[in-house]
């Protein structure tokens, strides 16, 4: 039994890039199999012994990781053609050779590590937070129905991992679309009693440049989201809100909240 596991190996084809501006290239690795491995433990094995499949010494593969339990989003990469988190990508469930690529929608920092800054900038742009600080005690927030809380909790599972942006055909270098993640966060914050006080500001931001209107309804986001967030439902709900808001601001009075 010990003999058999020793000879068993896992093949990897990894898309590498030495610096943000250099050309990418593929490198193959073959590492010994262990039980219950995930892509991250395999990458750690390569880091421990950075030798490629040809037996040449090479620089260890660079990647990003955080929580190792699919809640931080940092370790996202394209695994066998599908963007997902490498911590929950179990080797036993993957077809070999395992192909690892960076999420190319984002600027590549090095190898599998990408810069997801545009997502955080988008969250700032659309004010995806609920202001609760004041110069005096603002008191407790309004109560929320339990059923509504449970629904909102699903939207709050977003970890800004970038998978939906990677899957979206309208998020690319030709366009400045902020992507589905930030849009769904606007819906979340608009839906809570305290957050709804700032709904108008968020709607103005979300219908601004690069906003909601750039969605082309390919619906890849909702199919790809690792957390099962109803992204396209959020987008359509915001579309309705934007329709109502624009009618109000055109035909309505001088104050439209």
């Amino acid at each position: 039994m010990a003999e058999a596991t020793k000879t068993k190996t896992i093949k990897f084809i990894i898309t590498r890039q030495d610096s943000p501006d250099s050309q990418s290239y593929e490198e193959e690795f073959e590492i010994p199999y262990r039980k219950n491995m995930n892509v991250i433990s395999a990458l750690m094995e390569i880091r421990r012994n950075p030798v490629n499949a040809k037996g040449e010494e090479t620089a260890p593969v660079n990647w990003e990781m955080g929580c190792l339990e699919e809640v931080c989003g940092a370790c996202s990469m394209v695994i066998n053609g599908k963007p997902r988190q490498s911590c929950t990508a179990l080797i036993d469930q993957l077809e070999q050779p395992v192909r690892l690529e960076p999420m190319n929608t984002f600027p590549v920092v090095r190898d599998l590590e990408v810069d997801r800054r545009r997502m955080f900038d988008s969250l700032k742009k659309v004010k995806a937070w609920t202001p609760i600080d004041g110069t005096h005690d603002l008191g407790p927030g309004e109560r929320m129905a339990e059923s509504r809380r449970q629904w909102a909790y699903e939207l709050s599972k977003c970890m800004t991992c970038g998978v939906c942006l990677e899957a979206c055909p309208n998020v690319n270098s030709n366009a400045n679309f902020i992507g589905p993640a930030a849009l769904s966060q606007v819906r979340l914050h608009n839906a809570t009693p305290n957050g709804s006080l700032h709904k108008a500001e968020r709607m103005a931001a979300v219908t601004g440049d690069g906003g909601l209107q750039n969605c082309g309804n390919s619906q890849n986001c909702v199919q790809s989201c690792p957390k099962g967030i109803p992204l396209t439902t959020s987008i359509a709900a915001l579309n309705r809100e934007a329709t109502v808001q624009s009618f109000k601001s055109f035909f309505g009075s001088d104050h439209n909240q």
Partner: peptide, 10 residues
């Protein structure tokens, strides 16, 4: 129908 927010639910 999606763009104008008429059909929201899947």
């Amino acid at each position: 129908f999606v763009t104008w927010g008429l059909t929201i639910s899947p």
